[in-house]
Structures are given as structure tokens and as C-alpha cells.
């Protein structure tokens, strides 16, 4: 059994007056790609935002390397090695691509040269467009930028929120390949996706979230073949 990196225990999160997460449990081991699936409003984004400290947990724990992240402010969580590429990319549109990337390394004294080279190798398009304003990039390119920006923090755990959302299919494929390469580089990945098929093909393990509860969990391969998952998320019927 490999080493535990992130353990979410009985996490409850309120979003306004609504209980968005109703006590979920899941874990991520070092080196894994774990995918959280679920429909719109299942609480996937809320989970990631809570891990990054943007939302406060009502109760429960998020143990990362033994530290409870629910008690750490957002900007310090990045320093602990958890970076996120947020839902809808959220690149800084009026800053250049290069400025966005350098901001990713805000917690570092200097932007790491090797990481920078690696990112431009993963996404050569960003190198071509590095002087351009990020807001002028296409959706897929912005997603590449959001992931690159997160990688500049040299995270141990990378949180990806819907990297395939609203992106041309050809770029989706490219981004999923890049995620695989990132994982091969030793970064643990927690991937939230609606595109269940693509996510499960990539992931080691998966959890299916349904209105604030973990419904189904298991190995990615088993989930791909699970009739319940197939019916609900893969559009297959017997």
C-alpha cells in the first residue's frame, strides 16, 4: 500500500445557507491520479475550493501530510505544496501569459528554471504566446496556462477542476495527455471532472459524488465497468 498524502474526513461545507458537502470521506495516495466525478451541483468544485482554503469547512478535517488544512489560510496552503487550477481557468486576463506563469511561483524566491522549461515543453503554445495577454488566449490555451501556473508552485498535490470544460475536443485530449505526463513527473493529481469516461481512463481510482455524498468509490477500471456509473455518467444503458 502506498503512502497517504491527502485524507478528507467527514467534511461538511456550507455554501450560503445550503449544505453543499454533507460529510464526505476520501483519500489520495502519493503518486496517484484520483478522480472525483459527479453531475453539476454534486459538490465537486466546493470540495476543491475547501481543500485550497477558499471556503471554510463547517466540520471535518482535511489532512495533508498530517496537517489539517481547514485551519490554514489559503495563501499558506500553496506554500505547503497544494496548487490548484480552478474551475473556469480564472487566468489573469489583463496580465500577459508570462506574468501569469510567474505569479504561479509567487511563493518561491525565484521562478524555478527547470519547471519553467518543463512547462513550455508540455505546452509549447504558451511559449509562443508568452507576451500576449492571457485574456486573448482560446479556452484550451487558458486551461494550459492555468495548469502551468499551478505547476510553477512546484506542488506535491495538484488539484484540477474540470480541465475539459468548454474546450475543443482536440485540446481536451492534449490536456489529458499532459496530466498523465505531470503525474509521471511525480506530482499527485486530484482531478474533478464531468467528463467521466476520459477522467476514469486516466485515473487510478475514482469517487462518484452525488449531492454532497460520496456514492460510489473504487478503482478507475472497475468504475468504468460499473453499470451504475455507466448508466448515470457514461450514457450507456443495458
Amino acid at each position: 500500500m502506498s503512502e497517504l498524502l491527502l485524507e478528507v474526513k467527514d467534511l461538511v461545507v456550507n455554501y450560503g445557507s445550503i449544505q453543499a458537502i454533507k460529510g464526505i470521506n476520501f483519500s489520495v495516495n502519493k503518486g496517484e491520479i484520483v478522480s472525483i466525478l459527479g453531475a453539476n451541483g454534486a459538490g465537486k468544485t466546493t470540495t476543491l475550493r475547501t481543500i485550497s482554503g477558499l471556503l471554510k469547512a463547517k466540520s471535518g478535517q482535511i489532512l495533508y501530510n498530517g496537517t489539517d488544512l481547514t485551519k490554514v489560510p489559503a495563501h499558506k496552503i500553496v506554500r505547503l505544496g497544494v496548487a490548484q487550477s480552478p474551475e473556469g481557468r480564472q487566468v489573469f486576463g489583463t496580465l500577459t501569459v508570462e506574468e501569469n506563469i510567474r505569479l504561479g511561483a509567487f511563493t518561491k524566491k525565484h521562478a524555478d528554471k527547470d519547471t519553467l522549461e518543463w512547462i513550455y515543453e508540455l505546452f509549447p503554445r504558451l511559449l509562443e504566446r508568452r507576451k500576449q495577454l492571457a485574456g486573448t488566449l482560446s479556452g484550451g490555451e487558458q486551461q494550459m496556462l492555468a495548469i502551468s501556473r499551478a505547476l510553477m508552485a512546484q506542488p506535491q498535490l495538484l488539484l484540477l477542476d474540470e480541465p475539459s470544460l468548454g474546450i475543443a475536443p482536440i485540446l481536451v485530449k492534449m490536456i489529458f495527455q499532459a496530466v498523465k505526463k505531470i503525474s509521471g513527473h511525480g506530482v499527485t493529481v486530484l482531478l474533478v471532472e464531468q467528463n467521466a469516461k476520459a477522467a476514469l481512463k486516466l485515473a487510478d481510482r475514482g469517487y462518484v459524488l452525488d449531492v454532497g455524498h460520496v456514492n460510489i468509490e473504487g478503482n478507475a477500471k472497475d468504475l468504468l465497468n460499473d453499470p451504475k456509473v455507466q448508466e448515470a455518467y457514461l450514457g450507456k444503458k443495458d
Binding site: 480564472q90 489573469f92 505569479l103
Partner: peptide, 15 residues
Amino acid sequence: RASAINQDAAKLMGI
């Protein structure tokens, strides 16, 4: 400048 554009995203940068 980043905080002026998007405070949440800025926090995710560790700002």
C-alpha cells in the same frame, strides 16, 4: 494587479 483582477485566483497563487 492579480488581486485586482481575481482575489480567489490570487489566493491560489499563494498571495
